[in-house]
Nucleic acid binder design. Structure first.
Length: 743
DNA sequence: GTCTGTACTTAGGAAGCAATTC
DNA sequence: GAATTGCTTCCTAAGTACAGAC
C-alpha cells in the first residue's frame, strides 16, 4: 500500500484504505427527557416466515374478534368480518387512547406481535375513451388497442404541462408508448398505420376530452360531489385501518400507485417513462402470524404472503422503472411512527452532550497530515455548520444531484481569504447557493482538495462516502450519522430562536405567530427548504398592499371627520392627528382611483353574471341602462371623493350623521387600526414565506416539543401552530411537554 | 472494500378543500 | 351563491442508512 505525499499531506489512496476512527465510546450518561419514557431492551423475537402458501385455510368471514372494555379498563379490539373484508372497529377509540409514551418503549428488533389488515386498494381499471376521441397521427384519427390508448391518454391529459414540453419526457414516453403499442398488436384502424414519429402525434382531442371531464366534475352539484365522495370513502374504509398488537391503527398509503408517466424532478434521465400497472401478483403482503390473508381481487393471487415482524410495512411491490421497492406503511399518527420520531429527536438531543467534543476534534483534525482525516474533518464541518446532507453516490439513470460527500470540483468556488460559494443541486434538484465565510483552515483544506490535477467533474472528497463518514461519526457517539446533525442543528436553532424572543403576554396572537414563523423560517433556511414562488404571488402582494392603503385612508378620513365635529381636538392631541398630514393628497387620489376601478369591474361582472343567469332561466335580460346607471353611480362617488380631497375634507351632512358621535368615531378608528396592523403582519409573513417552505422543517426537523413549549409558554393555541394532521402525528409531544421543556 | 437490496425518512408539487371575497 | 384564494392533505419521488453477499 503505497503512501504518497501530496503537498504537506500524507496521501493514502482514495476510498480504499482502512479507516482508523478516533474511537470515543459513549462514556457519558445519556439523560433522556424527563418523560416517563423508558427504553426497554427487549429480546428480539424475530419470526420470519416467507413464501407461505398463498391460500389461507381460514376464510375471512369466519374470523370474529370483539373489542370490549375489560373490567380493568383495557380496551380489546373487535374484529368482525363482513362478506369481503375484516371489519375493523375499535370500540372505545383504542387507537387514540394508547399512549405509548407513557408505557415505555421497546427497543428490540421486533416491531410488533400481531398485525391484521385488509391488504391494499387497487386503482380502478382503465376506462376507454369514447369512440369519437382518438389520437390523430399524421392528420388521421387512429384507433389504438386499449393498452396503448391508456398510455396515449397519460400523455394527452398533460400536454399543457412543462413535463410534456420537455424533450426527454417526450422521448421516454414515446419509446414506451411504441413498446406497448407493438406488444398489444399495433394500430387497430387504419390497420397498417405505423406510429414512428412523435411530432406527427396530435393528442389534442384526448386532452380536450379529459378537460371536459374535469370541467364536468367541477360543475357537479354539491350533492353529487358528496355522493361520489361518500362512495369513495366507503370503498376505502376497509383499508384505512389495521390492527396492530390488538389496537386499531391508521394505515398511510393503502392505495396502490396507479399507472402513469414517471415525473422525475429536475433533469431526470428517466422522466416520462411508463410506470406500469401493479397487479396483486406483484404484491407481497406482510401479516402477523396466523392473521387471515385478505381476499385478493377475483381471478388473482397475491405475489407472496410474508410474516415478518421486524419491519414496519404492510405491503410492498417493485416498480418497473428502477426496480425499486414501494411500501405500504403505517400512517404518521401510528404508534410505530411516533416511536421512531421520538427516538429520532432523542438521538438528536443526545448529540447535544457530544457536540463540543466533536467540534473540538474535527477542528483539530483540520490540521491533520493525513488526507483521509482532513477530508473527514472538513466534511463533518460542512455537515455541522451548513446542514448539508450526507450525499450518496448516484447512478447514471438518476438526476445529477449531490450532497456533502458527492460534492465535485465545480460545486465550490473559493475566494481569498476564506470565502466560499456553494452552488449545486441538492435533493429534488433544489439549488443550494450560498456565499459564506468559512474557518480559515477549512478554506485551506478545500483549496487543497481542489488542487491540480483535480479538475471539473472530480470528487472533492475522494476518500469519503456516507458509509465511511458515518462509521467515523459513530466513533463519537453510538448511532450518530450525518442526518442526525441536521435534526440537531434544526432543533437547536429553533430553541435558540425561542430563547431570544421578546414576547409580551398582551401581544395579539397573530403577532406571536409571526415570531414563531420567523423562527421556523430560520430553520427552513438553514435546511434549504424551498418552494417555487406561486404564479400570482406578486399580484396578491399588490392587492394586499392596496387593501392596506385603503384601510389607512379610511382611518384618516374618520380622523378628519372627528375634527370637523370638534375642531379643538387637534390642539389637544396633536400626535393623534399628525398622520392626516402624512397621508398626502396624491396618495388619497390614488386610493380613490383604485376603489373606482374595482367598482367598475365589480359592476360589469355583476351585470354579465346576472344576465347569464336570466338567460338560462329564459327571463328578460337587464337593460344596458342598468349597467350604465351603476357605472354612473361609481363615477359620481369617485367625483364626490375627489372633491372631498380637493376641498380639504368637507364631509356631507349625511356622512357626518352616519359616522356618529365622538365616542363612536373613536371606536371605529380603533377598529381600523387593529385591522391595519393585522393586515401588515400577514402581508409581511406571506412575503417572507414566498420562497421558503416552512412545512418540511416543522414536520421533520424541529422537535415538536419545542412548538408545544412555545404554545404553552406564550399562550398560543397549539391549533395555530399544528394542523389537525400534525396534532395527530405529534400527540406524544403535545401531551408530554410543558412550558419549561428544552431541546 | 464494494456492490446490491431493503427499509426507512424527507421532500416539493398537485390536488383538494375551506375560508374569504365579491 | 359563485369565484377566488390560500392553506392542508395527498402523492410519490428522492434521499439516508445499513446489512449481507461476494
Amino acid at each position: 500500500m503505497a503512501t504518497k505525499i501530496t503537498g504537506s499531506l500524507i496521501d493514502e489512496q482514495p476510498l480504499k484504505k482502512k479507516v482508523k476512527l478516533s474511537a470515543r465510546k459513549n462514556d457519558e450518561e445519556i439523560p433522556l427527557s424527563k418523560l416517563k419514557i423508558k427504553l426497554k431492551n427487549k429480546e428480539p423475537q424475530v419470526q420470519k416466515i416467507k413464501k407461505e402458501n398463498l391460500k389461507d385455510e381460514r376464510p375471512l368471514n369466519k374470523l370474529l374478534q370483539h373489542s370490549e372494555k375489560t373490567p380493568d379498563g383495557e380496551t380489546e379490539t373487535k374484529i368482525e368480518s363482513n362478506e369481503n373484508s375484516l371489519n375493523i372497529k375499535s370500540e372505545g377509540d383504542s387507537e387514540e387512547s394508547y399512549k405509548w409514551w407513557e408505557e415505555g418503549i421497546q427497543d428490540g428488533v421486533k416491531k410488533w406481535d400481531t398485525l391484521q389488515h385488509n391488504g391494499v386498494l387497487f386503482p380502478p381499471p382503465y376506462e376507454p375513451l369514447p369512440s369519437n376521441v382518438k389520437l390523430i397521427y399524421d392528420g388521421v384519427p387512429v384507433t389504438l388497442p386499449l393498452d396503448a390508448e391508456e398510455v396515449a391518454g397519460f400523455f394527452g391529459v398533460m400536454i399543457n404541462t412543462d413535463h410534456a414540453k420537455n424533450p426527454v419526457f417526450q422521448k421516454n414516453f414515446f419509446a414506451d408508448f411504441q413498446k406497448v403499442l407493438k406488444k398489444s398488436g399495433g394500430v387497430v384502424e387504419p390497420k397498417d398505420t405505423k406510429i414512428t414519429v412523435f411530432k406527427k402525434c396530435d393528442f389534442s382531442k384526448i386532452f380536450e376530452y379529459y378537460e371536459s371531464k374535469r370541467e364536468e366534475r367541477k360543475q357537479m352539484s354539491r350533492a353529487d360531489k358528496k355522493k361520489i365522495k361518500d362512495e369513495k370513502d366507503k370503498l376505502e374504509e376497509p383499508y384505512k385501518y389495521c390492527i396492530l398488537d390488538g389496537r386499531k391503527e391508521q394505515v398511510g398509503n393503502f392505495r396502490v400507485e396507479p399507472p402513469s408517466l414517471f415525473r422525475g424532478r429536475g433533469q431526470h434521465p428517466k422522466t416520462g417513462c411508463l410506470k406500469t400497472r401493479v397487479f396483486p401478483e406483484d404484491i407481497i403482503l406482510n401479516l402477523g402470524p396466523g392473521s387471515p390473508v385478505p381476499e385478493p381481487p377475483s381471478g388473482h393471487q397475491w405475489g407472496e404472503i410474508r410474516r415478518d415482524n421486524t419491519v414496519q410495512w404492510l405491503a410492498m411491490w417493485k416498480e418497473n422503472i428502477f426496480n425499486s421497492v414501494k411500501y405500504v406503511r403505517f400512517a404518521a399518527n401510528s404508534s410505530l411512527k411516533g416511536i421512531s420520531d421520538y427516538k429520532k429527536f432523542e438521538k438528536a438531543r443526545e448529540l447535544k452532550i457530544h457536540i463540543d467534543a466533536i467540534r473540538d476534534d474535527y477542528k483539530k483534525k483540520l490540521y491533520s497530515k493525513v488526507m483521509f482525516e482532513r477530508q473527514i474533518a472538513v466534511a463533518t464541518y460542512l455537515i455541522d455548520v451548513f446542514a448539508l446532507r450526507a450525499g450518496g453516490e448516484k447512478g447514471d439513470d438518476e438526476a445529477d444531484t449531490v450532497g456533502c460527500c458527492s460534492l465535485r470540483y465545480e460545486h465550490i468556488e473559493l475566494f481569498e481569504p476564506n470565502n466560499v460559494t456553494f452552488d449545486f443541486l441538492g435533493k429534488d434538484s433544489i439549488r443550494y447557493y450560498q456565499k459564506v465565510e468559512v474557518d480559515k483552515q477549512v478554506f485551506k483544506s478545500l483549496k487543497l482538495f481542489k488542487k491540480s490535477p483535480k479538475k471539473k467533474g472530480d470528487q472533492l472528497f475522494d476518500r469519503l462516502d456516507p458509509s465511511i463518514l458515518n462509521k467515523h461519526l459513530q466513533g463519537y457517539m453510538p448511532g450518530l450519522t450525518a442526518k442526525v446533525f441536521r435534526t440537531y442543528n434544526a432543533s437547536k436553532t429553533m430553541q435558540d430562536q425561542i430563547d431570544a424572543m421578546d414576547i409580551k403576554a398582551e401581544e395579539p396572537v397573530q403577532e406571536k405567530l409571526l415570531k414563531y414563523n420567523a423562527a421556523n423560517r430560520e430553520v427552513a433556511i438553514l435546511c434549504n427548504h424551498q418552494k417555487s414562488v406561486s404564479k400570482n404571488h406578486e399580484t396578491s402582494m399588490q392587492k394586499a398592499n392596496d387593501k392596506i392603503q385603503e384601510l389607512l385612508w379610511q382611518k384618516i378620513r374618520l380622523k378628519k371627520c372627528l375634527l370637523q365635529l370638534k375642531p379643538d381636538l387637534k390642539k389637544i392631541d396633536k400626535k393623534f392627528f399628525a398622520e392626516i398630514d402624512d397621508f398626502k393628497k396624491e396618495k388619497e387620489l390614488e386610493v380613490i382611483e383604485k376603489i373606482y376601478e374595482r367598482d367598475i369591474v365589480k359592476y360589469k361582472r355583476k351585470f354579465t353574471s346576472e344576465n347569464e343567469k336570466r338567460k338560462e332561466k329564459s327571463e328578460a335580460l337587464l337593460p344596458d341602462e342598468d349597467l350604465k346607471e351603476w357605472l354612473e353611480s361609481a363615477e359620481k362617488s369617485r367625483a364626490d371623493l375627489i372633491k372631498e380631497v380637493e376641498t380639504g375634507a368637507d364631509f356631507s351632512e349625511e356622512f357626518m350623521k352616519k359616522s356618529g358621535d365622538e365616542e363612536k368615531i373613536r371606536a371605529k378608528i380603533k377598529k381600523f387600526e387593529e385591522r391595519i396592523q393585522v393586515a401588515f403582519i400577514q402581508l409581511k409573513d406571506r412575503d417572507d414565506n414566498s420562497q421558503v417552505s416552512l412545512g418540511t422543517s416543522k414536520i421533520n426537523y424541529i422537535d415538536p416539543r419545542l412548538s408545544v413549549m412555545f404554545s404553552k409558554k406564550f399562550g398560543v393555541p397549539i391549533e395555530r401552530l399544528f394542523t389537525k394532521t400534525l396534532r395527530d402525528k405529534f400527540t406524544w409531544a403535545i401531551e408530554s411537554a410543558d412550558e419549561t421543556w428544552r431541546f
